[in-house]
């Protein structure tokens, strides 16, 4: 799929996500808008996954460690055929498979249950290690939030991934510079990530996390260093694509009112067509 097609798909996913947040009256719309381009490029261009065989041992693994943006993953999985598109309308409803954080027991295509931050990367290290033990070619990708990198468990996993020489592991940091309550720079400012990850022995790519060609290139096997795990620092905007949400800390999990919803939808329509 070329960048133009990916842009259309990502726009459609953004609109469906926004609609579901509006209808459910809840969600984490800011972080969903920042991660959707990354998820779109992975699921439509890179990952070897098959909705007809979601547990195929040879599949690539994707872990959404920033599990609060589950809705973005659900919409992407629906677009890829892992669940019916119209099931998105059940998001957060009583007994829905689509609760606020992804659950592998409920939903094929989800690899591990996330929600508490700092869990996805250690699990992804285990996945990548399993593939190495068996000399298999499937790859593991994990998406974390930049604020989530404040969790110490991630740095435990970063050490281990380098020690285990997991060049089949790609960590993507959704670097939107905002966490729930404030900017990273006002909290625990981990940026810049590159020197820190490099110091731990990782190969690092710094990209525009909304540029589909840059994302696709960075997550592909075209980049990397043999024997080193790869980190893609995806520079993104929280609330990307919606002017009044973009880079605005207020929109971590705020829900738009009717007029905001219409404006946001109109802006997404404009950029996606």
């Amino acid at each position: 799929m070329d960048s133009q097609e990916l842009r259309f798909v990502a726009s459609r996913i953004r609109r469906r996500d926004l609609q579901a947040v509006f209808e459910a009256g809840a969600g984490h719309v800011g972080g969903e808008m920042s991660v959707i381009d990354i998820l779109t490029c992975l699921y439509f261009n890179e990952l070897s996954v098959d909705p007809a065989a979601p547990l195929d041992p040879e599949r690539d693994r994707l872990v959404l460690s920033k599990g609060h943006t589950a809705l973005a993953l659900y919409v992407v999985l629906a677009e890829r055929g892992f669940l019916p598109r119209d099931e998105i309308s059940t998001f957060l409803k009583h007994r829905s498979r689509l609760n606020g954080h992804p659950n592998r027991v409920y939903l094929p295509g989800v690899e591990t249950n996330t929600g508490p931050l700092g869990h996805g990367l250690p699990v992804a290290v285990g996945m990548a290690k399993a593939a190495k033990l068996d000399d298999r070619s499937w790859r593991t990708f994990v998406i974390v939030g930049d604020g989530e990198m404040q969790e110490g468990s991630n740095w435990e996993a970063i050490m281990a991934a380098a020690q285990f020489r997991l060049d089949n592991l790609t960590l993507i940091i959704d670097h939107n510079r905002l966490q729930q309550g404030a900017r990273l720079s006002e909290t625990n400012d981990l940026a810049p990530f590159r020197p820190k990850l490099e110091a731990f022995g990782w190969h690092v790519e710094d990209i525009d996390g909304h540029d589909h060609s840059q994302i696709c290139h960075a997550v592909s096997t075209a980049t990397g260093t043999p024997g080193k795990p790869k980190c893609v620092v995806a520079n993104t905007n929280k609330g990307h694509g919606i002017s009044f949400m973009s880079d605005n800390v207020a929109w971590h999990h705020k829900v738009p009112d009717e007029s905001q919803y219409r404006q946001a939808m109109a802006e997404l329509m404009e950029t996606g067509e």
Binding site: T112, P122, V123, A124, G126, M127, K129, A130, A131, D134
Partner: peptide, 9 residues
């Protein structure tokens, strides 16, 4: 976490 990932694999 690594244990859980190994089990997944």
């Amino acid at each position: 976490g690594v244990g859980a990932g190994l089990a997944n694999g």
